[in-house]
Design a protein around this nucleic acid. Sequence first.
RNA 1: CGGGAUGUAGCGCAGUCUGGUAGCGCACCUGGUUUGGGACCAGGGUGUCGGGGGUUCGAAUCCCUCCAUCCCGACCA
Length: 508
Amino acid sequence: MLGKAVKTAINPTRQEDYPEWYQQVIKAADLAEHSPVRGCMVIKPWGYALWENIQRVLDKMFKDTGHKNAYFPLFIPKSFLEKEAQHVEGFAKECAVVTHHRLQAGPDGKLIPAGELEEPLIVRPTSETIIGAMFAQWVQSYRDLPLLINQWANVVRWEMRTRLFLRTAEFLWQEGHTAHSTPREAVEETMKMLEVYSAFAQDYMAMPVIKGEKSESERFPGAVSTYSIEAMMQDRKALQAGTSHFLGQNFSHASGIKFLDSAGKEEYAWTTSWGVSTRLIGGLIMTHGDDDGIIVPPRLAPSHVVILPVLHGDEGSSGIFDYCDKLAAQLKAVQYYGRPIEAEVDKREGRGGDKVWSWIKKGIPLYLEIGPRDIASDSVFIGRRDKSRKERFGMQREEFLGKVSGILTDIQNNLFERAKAFRDSNMKIIDNKDEFYDYFTPKNKEKPETHGGFALSHWNGSAQVEEQVKKDLNVTIRCIPLDGEAESGKCVISGEKSGRRVIFAKSY
RNA sequence: CGGGAUGUAGCGCAGUCUGGUAGCGCACCUGGUUUGGGACCAGGGUGUCGGGGGUUCGAAUCCCUCCAUCCCGACCA
């Protein structure tokens, strides 16, 4: 038996210390760890398998909407970045710069950089400029448009403060870049991809999101308009989970993406870009995780079912292993949401309890404990990760094989409904300034408790109000929701006229 | 980059104030007991005390410096 003091697999609990809980969940699930390089993480197999599933699903969604994958260089000439004024201003402070192309031994035997480059190269923080330069060569005529390209890549942003998955110096993402002949078409593309992200977040990650437009101060550097999906984490802070930008003609002017229209007139193309990153995994953890670790939604789970043989020393293990192997094979023949169920038998040595808990901490949707009694009755003993360990139940093997896909669907739905109920119960319409300030101010300043949430309040549209709530409360406008209805009212801070509510929250 | 904290075995920590043989719990390895389950007994240390420099007969401990991580800001996906 484990020490009596331990009630949960993760210490501390979410309630006790949310940021520390987050770190411990990643460690317990073996998702990732810090590398010797500042701010950079090593993504371990269980975490990377999650990312691969995210990639697989999104990649299909991108292709189904007409996009094709390509790959562009890691390095961007400094002069390219300088072409778009707002863009360079937005990214200049967080760029890694390559200035030399070789090393040589110094007098003390240590390696020193040599061969200084004519023009420094920037390690891409995003690829608008290098892709724009290529687009300029690829586009001549309106017949070359639209150009719909996606890239799966790593990017580097030299952040001051990093957190695994949420903000690392290097991260994995996809960046879509498209060029169109009309602004209308480019805006449609921007909205279409926002919709793809929203569908992915909700249908696969079981993470409810709000689609909206960013205020000017939160806009991507160089964009005409930026849209995002915003999710609420369990500490009630907002996480920007994906962005889609309408870039107007800013980057086509900067990169010279020109085409002749059907009338033979030269025009600049209208471009978009959109991306999601490994940050999604951080969002997954903080949307579904509990005090026993991460809970992986079945549709993205690297493995759906683990079978744990309950071994008895005297009886030998071969009979139990045979039964488990057969069960695993039968499970793999079952389809769940368009792909075969992933099942594995955990044949590691070691005590049963340790093994079960290791899978609980990894968040596997279903764990089966199979011993002689189950074999004798041809049944399985089932634990659901979205339910308490006390709620395990038995079922005939044949019946389970018929129902397993439905159980996974039920878990997927349960996770979504649970997260949505949590978010909705922490969204509040606030029309009064005092109430607004009270909502976002912790009672205990020394050790702030979980507080706040999403405030749905009126805003007069001024950056001054944004600055004020940011300074006073560290609260920002997360987005101007797209699905909400116009409603006239008064700005919660300034009292001036407002045409609609926006979402205020603290954020990651 | 500003403020605060931390860095000692795989993990969690004590030892640092007051310098004198590197410790504890868990994990791990060996043997045994146990077995529907986060066990027990016995034995085993697997370490550049974050790195570098200094003070000293002697440094985990004192001084300088650098690095990394965490929290709160500023910046951001």
